[in-house]
Nucleic acid binder design. Structure first.
Length: 334
DNA sequence: TACGCGCGCTGGTCATGTAA
DNA sequence: TTACATGACCAGCGCGCGTA
């Protein structure tokens, strides 16, 4: 097991704060994620093994069951969830130690090549909106596979503006934290954007495109179109009454030098009670439907499904937890 | 008047993700 | 490579002010 370079390790205090943010966010979404917590692998690297254990322990205490963590490559995150019960022929329980090795192996399989000729470019730390987008993109994509990435950006941009101050503050805090850790990890880093003359201008200016959109459509942030619910972090299962819950792909941030393969396994620590209770956010179906329809209208790409503001949102009733392929998981273990 | 400095504004890049 | 969102941060510019 390799260890993380000391210089990249955050302070205990900051790691704890970040862990609390992660945990509190996870708690808000537990109801819609089948009691599953998703931890982006690079975030895990930042909070450290002890704090991963804390989250495991808290989740275990909360749901009253043993908890397992494993890497899910498809979402580049570690999933912390109730240890699944297997029936039938083969394996009844996955040994924790075995799973540790397999997780490590699993992640290592997908590590970058160890030989790098060029020094990796240090990316900029993400801002609050980038984190917010990163957090919501998978859910929106899952709920609406037909949405293009640009449309998702438009939707999430409007949603961000309409988002409650509480949520925005949370993401800003996390962005600040990541910025601070970025500065610690790369003390000599300096943002050096290329001059416009060094790079071809990115076609039309943002202002132009912005203006075009604003001229074409009413502001979706107005009270008439946006729910005033605490959060519209809601693209999960949907029913007749509305959309509930969310996946919890929280704040992945790529720090090039950090690989988390050894951090996701350990014995469960003594119980710690969760700090907060889970709550739920609701967004009614029509609101999201009109939001999406409005965006389609805005950018002139209306479809039969979404073009009308009153169009029905056709979402499949899927929970994230149900997408886990346990056969692959188990075959990885052995 | 000429020069240097600091401040604020503006405009541009780039951070995320992914289809086209 | 581009599009699309927001926000952080940089360079460049103009302006006002102080000093020689």
């Amino acid at each position: 097991m390799t260890s993380i370079p000391q210089a990249l390790k955050p302070t205990t205090e900051s790691s704890d704060k970040l862990t609390e943010l992660l945990w509190q966010d996870a708690l808000r979404h537990l109801g819609s994620t089948n009691n599953e917590v998703l931890l982006p692998v690079n975030v895990i690297d930042m909070i450290g093994q002890t704090n991963v254990n804390k989250i495991k322990t808290r989740l275990g205490a909360l749901i009253g069951a043993s908890v397992v963590a494993f890497a899910d490559e498809s979402i580049n995150a570690v999933r912390v969830m109730r240890t699944p019960a297997f029936s039938g022929t083969a394996i009844s329980v996955a040994s924790h130690e075995v799973s540790c090795e397999s997780i490590t192996a699993h992640v290592k399989k997908h590590e970058r090549p160890s030989v790098t000729v060029k020094a990796a470019k240090v990316p900029r730390p993400p801002n609050a909106f980038i984190l917010y987008r990163q957090h919501h993109h998978p859910k929106l994509k899952e709920a609406h596979p037909n949405l293009s990435n640009n449309e998702i950006s438009v939707i999430l941009g409007k949603q961000w503006k309409a988002e409650s101050e509480h949520i925005r503050v949370e993401f800003r805090a996390l962005a600040d934290e990541l910025k601070r850790k970025h500065a610690e990890a790369h003390p000599d880093y300096q943002y050096t954007p290329r001059k416009p003359s060094e790079k071809k201008r990115r076609t039309s200016s943002r202002r132009n495109s912005k203006q075009t959109v604003e001229n074409k459509s009413p502001d979706l942030t107005t009270a008439s179109t946006i729910s005033t619910s605490p959060s519209i972090d809601t693209y999960g299962p949907i029913n007749d009454t509305g959309i509930e819950g969310t996946m919890n792909i929280f704040t992945e941030y790529n720090m090039p030098e950090i690989y988390p393969s050894e951090l996701i396994c350990s014995d469960i620590m003594p119980s710690e009670l969760p700090l907060l209770s889970a709550d739920h956010f609701q967004l009614d179906t029509e609101t999201l439907g009109s939001l999406i329809g409005q965006v389609h209208t805005d950018i002139g790409k209306g479809t039969g499904v979404y073009a009308s503001p009153s169009a029905h949102v056709n979402l499949t009733d899927r929970h994230l937890g149900e997408t886990v392929n346990f056969s692959e998981f188990i075959s990885d273990l052995y």
